[in-house]
């Protein structure tokens, strides 16, 4: 199964209190978004991708355009709203892989695994979760959480959703991958997350 991907890079990154836009924040010297773009490019089952930007991240948008990447601009209201808007703008009315720009340890191999799991599940959506305790033990921040089968998890931001049903999200039966894998564990929301994630990346990657 091949799916298109959307890289979400239009957030404000307000939790970081940064001088630069979050997607451009250097992680081990390379901008966060470059790590993610490399991962998406190397995924065998991703047919192509767009970078979703907004007025919140003009420099990110300029960089992507300079590099010849396809960009979709959204209103920058929030992760979910921007996602719906991007899916509709690009008319991706089929399964779409959603990837946030703040997962520097992500790999193409991992994304292929997610796509396989989605295909097997037969559902209209799939979300990748990380146990809250795993992030807490590593002293990583836990900001967005979601419930799956009565248990709360940290949201990794990696999802697959059937674009044809993007408007009824919430009512969609969602499959889940719950994992401690470093690829989605190292989600960067704060300066402290960045320091810890760089350390873990040097050790385990």
């Amino acid at each position: 199964m091949k799916v298109p991907a959307l890289i979400m890079a239009g957030g404000k990154g307000k939790r970081m209190e940064l001088a630069v836009e979050k997607p451009l924040l250097p992680f081990l010297g390379k901008p966060l978004i470059d790590w993610v773009v490399d991962a998406v490019k190397s995924a065998r089952q991703v047919s192509g991708f767009y970078v979703v930007t907004s007025g919140n991240a003009p420099e990110t948008e300029a960089k992507c355009l300079r590099e010849g990447l396809r960009v979709i601009r959204t209103d920058g209201v929030g992760y979910h709203d921007d996602l719906v808007q991007a899916v509709l703008k690009a008319e991706l009315l089929r399964p779409v892989l959603i990837v946030p720009c703040d997962l520097p340890a992500l790999t193409g191999k991992f994304l292929d695994k997610v796509i396989d799991a989605f295909a097997e599940s037969g559902k209209d959506a799939l979300a990748v979760f990380v146990p809250i305790e795993t992030r807490e033990k590593l002293e990583l921040s836990v900001s967005s959480t979601d419930e799956h089968k009565g248990v709360w998890y940290a949201v990794s931001g990696v999802n697959i959703i059937n674009g044809a049903r993007v408007r009824d999200e919430g009512k969609i039966d969602t499959a889940a991958i719950i994992t401690e894998d470093v690829e989605v564990l190292l989600n960067i929301n704060t300066q402290k997350d960045l320091a810890i994630a760089e350390k873990i990346m040097r050790k385990t990657c």
């Binding site: 790999t107 470093v182 385990t204 990657c205």
Partner: peptide, 8 residues
């Protein structure tokens, strides 16, 4: 061989 297609 790397364990991970990132830094390693």
């Amino acid at each position: 061989k790397p364990t991970h297609k990132g830094l390693g």
